[in-house]
Amino acid sequence: MARADPGRTNGPDREIRLLKNPDGQWTARDLSVEVTAQGESREEALDNLDAVVAAVEGDGGHSPTDDEIRDLDVDPEVARTQEDDLPDILQ
């Protein structure tokens, strides 16, 4: 089931549009924050939407752990010491 988020996204004026697509996927759109997410079920679409809203509002995500970095076949020390600029998409 969808998580409750703090702040304006959990208030009584939060409006979400939920649609079942022709391919069977579900699309959830938060009309206040103006973001959209999809899932294979209604619950998954709503959970994904909550995660997107949290990320957009700065409440989501975390710095990767060394194990997560190693899972990508990258040395954590090298990853943290590179001085390359971020790609445009991440700036």
Rank of each mutant, 00 (worst) to 15 (best):
R14Y: 04
D47E: 13
L46E: 11
Q38W: 04
R14T: 14
D88G: 10
V78G: 00
Q38N: 10
R42F: 00
L86A: 15
D88L: 07
T36L: 05
R29M: 13
N10P: 01
E44D: 14
D5G: 12
R17C: 10
D5S: 13
L31Q: 12
R42D: 08
T36P: 04
A54E: 10
D88H: 05
H62F: 13
M1D: 06
R70H: 01
V35F: 00
P87Y: 05
P6C: 04
V56E: 10
L90C: 08
Q82P: 00
V52L: 04
P22S: 14
D47S: 11
D73T: 03
E68R: 10
G7N: 14
I16R: 03
D73I: 00
E68P: 03
L72H: 05
L49K: 02
G61K: 11
Q82V: 10
D84N: 05
A79H: 01
I89Q: 11
S32P: 01
A55E: 10
I69E: 03
E43P: 00
R80Y: 00
V78D: 03
T9K: 05
L19D: 12
L86T: 05
T27G: 06
R29N: 02
V74R: 07
P22F: 00
G11S: 15
D67K: 15
N10W: 04
L86P: 05
S63M: 07
P76N: 03
E44P: 07
A45M: 02
V56L: 08
E43K: 14
P64L: 15
R70N: 03
I69D: 02
E57Q: 10
A79E: 01
R70C: 01
T9M: 09
D75F: 02
W26S: 05
T65A: 10
D66A: 12
D50K: 06
E15L: 14
E68Q: 15
G61D: 06
V35Q: 04
K20D: 01
A2W: 03
G39N: 07
L72T: 03
G7V: 10
L18V: 15
P87K: 08
D84T: 02
D13N: 14
D73C: 07
D5E: 09
Q25Y: 15
V74K: 09
G60M: 06
E15C: 08
R3L: 07
E68C: 06
L90N: 03
G39E: 09
L31C: 06
G60F: 06
